[in-house]
């Protein structure tokens, strides 16, 4: 234990995700001892980020304005909506530059253990967006784990009533990898989702 404020700093840093007690201590001492480290810059960014960044009213992505850059962009194709769990997933899909449609961020996945049901996710907002008939296809890109799959199943049932194509991202082999190193579950899924080539 360190005296007062130093320990407080370590404790606060340790509350952040992915930072254990040792990393927290290392960061705290970096802040304390490194002369070139600009504390005021960090603290002002921290305050600013909480003040400025909001969530897009349409899709739920992080945004500095009422709607996010993607929703405002006229070049995006409004007939496709890709449904993801978190804003981080939007960034991941954007990196591919393959998808030119719009997004919808749910804010998590259905998980009773964590107290998250459909009403805690932005599903109602999604249904509202789909109501005007612009959207032709909804691509469900929730995580390929139990909770993500459960959310995907729930959504696909909900959307069945609408005249909209619903698709799910494929599971399969990582590109550039070796077949022999794939685990059985992934390989099994790849077999299930195989495509006809001729």
């Amino acid at each position: 234990m360190y005296d007062g404020i130093v320990q407080e700093l370590i404790d606060e840093l340790g509350r952040l995700p992915g930072i254990g007690p040792k990393s927290a201590q290392r960061i705290a001492f970096h802040i304390l001892q490194t002369e070139s480290f600009d504390v005021s810059r960090l603290s002002s960014v921290l305050v600013e980020v909480r003040e400025k960044v909001k969530f897009c009213e349409i899709c739920g992505n992080v945004s500095e304005e009422v709607t996010c850059g993607i929703c405002r962009d006229p070049r995006r194709d409004p007939t496709f909506i890709c449904v993801v769990e978190e804003a981080k997933d939007v960034v991941a899909i954007e990196r591919t530059r393959e998808f030119r449609g719009l997004y919808h961020v749910l804010g998590g996945a259905i998980s009773p253990i964590d107290g998250i049901g459909p009403d805690d996710l932005r599903i109602r907002q999604l249904m509202t967006r789909l109501a005007d008939g612009t959207v032709m296809e909804v691509i469900i890109a929730t995580d390929p784990n139990l909770e993500g799959e459960a959310t995907a199943t729930y959504l696909s049932r909900l959307l069945k009533t609408l005249e909209i194509k619903v698709s799910r991202l494929a599971s399969g082999l990582p590109v550039g990898g070796d077949l022999e190193y794939a685990d059985e579950v992934t390989l099994g899924r790849a077999f299930e989702g195989r495509r006809t080539v001729s």
């Binding site: 998980s111 009773p112 253990i113 139990l146 909770e147 459960a150 059985e184 579950v185 099994g188």
Partner: peptide, 23 residues
């Protein structure tokens, strides 16, 4: 060995489901 995933997934679904039933 693949069934390790099936067994642990079953346990997790069971937990999720039981929590839902309790709520």
């Amino acid at each position: 060995p693949r069934l390790a995933g099936v067994v642990s997934d079953y346990d997790r679904v069971l937990k999720q489901r039981n929590t839902l039933l309790k709520t």
